[in-house]
Lab assay of single mutants.
Amino acid sequence: EAHAAIDTFTKYLDIDEDFATVLVEEGFSTLEELAYVPMKELLEIEGLDEPTVEALRERAKNALATIAQ
């Protein structure tokens, strides 16, 4: 499951495998979680700032909209 989540994140969020791995290690496994989890939870991840989190959430929401079509 972790590998599938990493693949999904790299494909749809335009991030590298290392960043995707950090997200999975922090407990995220779906685009929905990244799109809708409280921003505070993402900001608790070391190295993430508000602009990065906002961009990540926007990419996740856009990916979900694209997949739904």
Rank of each mutant, 00 (worst) to 15 (best):
F28Q: 01
E46V: 13
A5T: 08
A4L: 10
T30M: 05
L64S: 02
E32C: 11
A55C: 09
V53K: 04
Q69C: 08
E41D: 11
R57S: 05
E50F: 12
F19W: 07
T66V: 13
Y12I: 05
F9R: 01
G47E: 04
G27M: 02
E1K: 10
E54G: 08
L43F: 06
E33K: 11
A68N: 11
A35I: 13
M39I: 13
A2E: 10
L13E: 01
L48H: 02
K61Y: 07
L31H: 00
L48V: 08
A35F: 07
D14G: 15
P51W: 13
A55D: 08
T8Y: 11
E17W: 13
V24W: 15
E17D: 07
T8H: 09
H3V: 11
T30Q: 05
A35G: 03
A5Y: 07
A63K: 03
G47T: 05
Y12L: 07
L42V: 05
L13N: 00
E25Q: 15
T21R: 15
E17A: 12
E54H: 11
T8L: 15
D14C: 14
A20G: 02
N62H: 12
M39R: 09
E17G: 07
A63L: 04
I67K: 06
M39K: 10
E41S: 10
D49Y: 04
D16T: 13
L34A: 00
L23R: 00
V22T: 10
A60N: 01
A68R: 10
Y12A: 05
A4Q: 13
E1N: 13
L43D: 02
V53R: 04
A55S: 08
E50N: 07
G27Q: 02
A68C: 08
E17R: 15
K40F: 10
R57W: 04
L64R: 02
K40H: 13
E46W: 12
L31Y: 00
T21F: 12
V53C: 08
E1F: 07
A60R: 01
E1M: 11
E50G: 12
I15W: 01
D49S: 07
R57L: 10
F9E: 00
I67N: 05
F28W: 07
E32A: 10
A55M: 14
D14Q: 12
R57E: 01
L43S: 05
A20M: 02
G27T: 01
F9G: 00
I45T: 03
A20S: 03
L34F: 06
Q69E: 11
A35Y: 06
A20D: 01
T66D: 08
Y36E: 08
E54R: 15
A68H: 13
L64N: 02
L64G: 01
E26M: 15
E32L: 10
L43K: 05
V22C: 07
K40L: 09
L42Q: 03
F19N: 02
M39C: 06
E58F: 08
L13S: 00
I15V: 09
